[in-house]
C-alpha cells in the first residue's frame, strides 16, 4: 500500500546549527530568509526550547510549510 504524501521533514545532524540546517534544507535561498522560514515552520522547536535555539538530534524539522 502506497503511503500518502505528508509534510517533508529532516533531522539535525550532530552539532548542526539552524543556519547550517536551513542552508541544507533550502539551498539557493538567502540565508536569513531560509532561517526565518525554517523557524516559522517549526515553532515546536524555536518557541520555548531551553536553552533557546538548541537543536536536538531527535528533532523533526519540517522543510516545507503545512500542506493543509
Amino acid at each position: 500500500m502506497a503511503l500518502t504524501t505528508q509534510r517533508r521533514f529532516t533531522t539535525p545532524g550532530p552539532d548542526e546549527t539552524v543556519e547550517e540546517l536551513a542552508s541544507r534544507a533550502l539551498p539557493g535561498e538567502p540565508l536569513e530568509a531560509a532561517v526565518d522560514r525554517i523557524k516559522s515552520w517549526n515553532l515546536h522547536i524555536f518557541a520555548g526550547r531551553k536553552p533557546a535555539g538548541l537543536l536536538l538530534g531527535s528533532d523533526v524539522v519540517f522543510v516545507e510549510p503545512p500542506l493543509g
Binding site: L56, G57, S58, D59
Partner: peptide
C-alpha cells in the same frame, strides 16, 4: 530545569 531529557539528544541512528 526545563532541559530536554537525554533520549532527545539521540540521532535517529542511535
Amino acid at each position: 530545569n526545563g532541559r530536554p531529557v537525554p533520549s532527545r539528544f539521540a540521532q535517529f541512528e542511535e
